[in-house]
Amino acid sequence: MATVTLKGNAIHTSGDLPSVGNEAPNFKLVLNDLSSISLGDFKGSNLVLNVFPSIDTDTCAASVRKFNEQAASLENTKVLCISRDLPFAQARFCGAEGIKNVINLSDFRDREFGRLYGQAFIDGPLEGLLARAIVVIDGDGNVTHTEQISEIVDEPNYQAALDALTNE
């Protein structure tokens, strides 16, 4: 379990991020058209998992915009923006913002991703949502970088995630 803060108040996640060097846990998430997709569907691509509580908050929206600009332009890389927002909200946000270089995925249906990646909040005002984290996975399905953001209102270290992609 990880302890993070929301404006200085401690809240806890259901577990810890996968360890660097280990195989990434397989997951099943929901696309905007309500179909399901799994980690195996991205085999061979480098992935940035941008995990956050809700697309409708300033910091979460900023991370989607930033990764849309930066990491999405890297060769053989897909940016997966993962939350428990309904796919309709994710599609609305990206449509309004003109964001086309990331893939929005929802963990609303079976909440498996939050359990597998240890990112479901188990207490506090955000209980049931996902914590803010970054996981980079190489084309072989191995975790090459993780960042558990310690203060939920802070943005991730974008450069560290990008460096993990370019230093493989």
Rank of each mutant, 00 (worst) to 15 (best):
A2P: 08
A2Q: 13
A2L: 05
T3H: 11
V4H: 09
T5N: 14
L6C: 11
N9K: 15
N9W: 13
T13W: 05
T13Q: 01
S14L: 11
S14C: 14
D16L: 15
S19P: 13
A24N: 09
N26E: 12
N26K: 13
F27M: 05
F27D: 04
N32S: 13
N32P: 12
L34H: 13
L34T: 15
S35Q: 13
G40Q: 15
D41P: 05
D41M: 07
F42N: 13
F42M: 06
N46D: 13
L47G: 08
F52S: 06
D56K: 02
T57A: 11
C60N: 05
K66N: 12
F67M: 15
S73A: 15
S73Y: 11
N76R: 09
K78Q: 14
V79Y: 00
R84W: 06
P87N: 09
P87M: 06
P87T: 10
F88P: 11
A89I: 08
A89W: 09
A89M: 04
A89Y: 09
R92K: 08
R92H: 04
G95T: 07
A96C: 05
A96Q: 14
I99P: 01
N101D: 03
N101C: 05
N101W: 04
L105A: 02
S106E: 00
D107N: 03
F108R: 01
D110Q: 07
R111D: 11
F113R: 12
F113E: 02
G118K: 14
D123F: 09
D123Y: 09
G124E: 09
P125S: 13
L126M: 09
A133F: 02
G139Y: 12
T146N: 02
E147Q: 01
I149F: 11
I149C: 04
V153C: 10
D154K: 01
D154Q: 03
E155H: 08
D163F: 06
D163W: 05
N167A: 13
